[in-house]
């Protein structure tokens, strides 16, 4: 969206690895995270407690799971605004299945399949018909949540089986919740996929220059389609978790999550224009957003005021490196 040709600044030599690590985006995020952690510890006596910190993770794990896949999608130059609506639709379908007497394994399967199906639908529209993903997913966002509203209206589904509650409420070991474990495992998987496989390199290649990638033999359409499916699948997983945690389904479930997920991804250093980003950054951003919302929550700050901090954090963290680079360039130019 910014196509103004910038003056080329070519340094005499590349930064040393240590220097570039210190000035990397992830390092900046670590500093921000440590600072917020420290402020929180001083601000509230209830913060530094194993169970408090465990509760904290529930603030972001569901969104962060989607953010992992969304990061790949945004790196490839696309976006999916329909993820929250997919959560709503998948949750509604699970609710219908419960009314029909489905058990725990069927519920999980339905959640994942609906998520995958919605993702594939987005992917088909974008890759087969060559439509801009931001518009397509604004449309499917209304469509998916609209179907949930048609089915549910102003009612709610309840009565999920007790065995289903484990996904959103269970603990694997001591204070380590199932949700957190799942997120950490998924993060490792996505880290490997993006940074250690040829698939990941292709995702970066597509984001940097889709035409060049196409001519290099990368099947751009197919990879983008897979990424939409993955994002849908992660939304399906998040839907299982959130439905299990809340134990009920309303069509307004997870409203506004899409913007929080995208904020997480962008805060994590993924370029919204595509072609750059890392899974580590997204993980750190997820923790930071969890820390901010939980810390402010302990101080009885209302949720809507927290959103100001998240918004400011997003803009400041993006603006700072730009200002910093500008200052450096002016000094050395």
């Amino acid at each position: 969206m910014t196509d103004t040709p910038a003056p080329r600044h070519i340094p005499d030599r590349l930064d040393k690895p240590l220097t570039s690590a210190i000035f990397s985006w992830e390092a900046l995020l670590v500093v921000v995270a440590v600072a917020i952690f420290a402020v929180n510890s001083f601000a509230s006596p209830y913060f530094l407690d194993a169970w408090s910190l465990s509760d904290l993770t529930f603030n972001f794990t569901e969104k962060a799971l989607i953010a992992l896949a969304m990061a790949l999608l945004i790196i490839s130059g696309e976006i999916d605004l329909s993820v929250a609506a997919i959560i709503a639709l998948a949750s509604t379908m699970m609710g219908m299945a419960v009314q029909a007497g489905a058990g725990m394994p069927e519920l999980v399967a339905i959640g994942l399949v609906v998520g995958l199906g919605c993702g594939a639908f987005n992917g088909l529209l974008v890759t087969r018909l060559g439509l801009p993903s931001i518009v397509v997913t604004i449309g499917t966002m209304s469509l998916f949540r609209g179907i949930a509203f048609i089915i549910l209206g102003d009612r709610a589904y309840k009565g999920y089986p007790a065995s289903f509650a484990f996904f959103g409420q269970g603990y694997v070991w001591w204070v380590v919740s199932f949700e957190l474990t799942l997120f950490l495992v998924a993060a490792v998987v996505y880290w490997f996929l993006l940074h250690r496989t040829s698939f990941g390199r292709r995702v970066f290649a597509i984001g940097n220059n889709p035409v060049a990638a196409q001519f290099s033999g990368v099947r751009v359409g197919r990879i983008k389609f897979i990424l939409f499916c993955l994002t849908g699948l992660m939304a399906g997983i998040a839907s299982v978790l959130i439905t299990s945690r809340l134990g009920s389904t309303r069509p307004s479930i997870a409203q506004g999550y899409e913007l929080e997920v995208i904020t997480m991804v962008v805060l994590g250093g993924v370029s919204i224009l595509g072609g750059a980003g890392s899974i580590l950054g997204v993980m750190l951003a997820a923790f930071i957003m969890g820390l901010v919302t939980f810390g402010l929550g302990l101080l009885n700050v209302p949720g809507i005021v927290m959103s100001i901090f998240i918004g400011l954090l997003l803009i400041i963290v993006i603006a700072l490196p730009i200002l910093w680079r500008r200052v450096r360039r002016e000094r050395f130019a």
């Binding site: 969206m1 910014t2 103004t4 910038a6 931001i134 913007l259 995208i262 904020t263 962008v266 919204i272 224009l273 959103s307 100001i308 998240i310 918004g311 400011l312 997003l314 803009i315 993006i318 603006a319 730009i322």
Partner: peptide, 14 residues
């Protein structure tokens, strides 16, 4: 020169 989608995503919540 921040992409408008990022800026307005932030100001939307602010």
């Amino acid at each position: 020169n921040i992409p408008s989608i990022v800026v307005t995503l932030g100001t939307l919540t602010i």
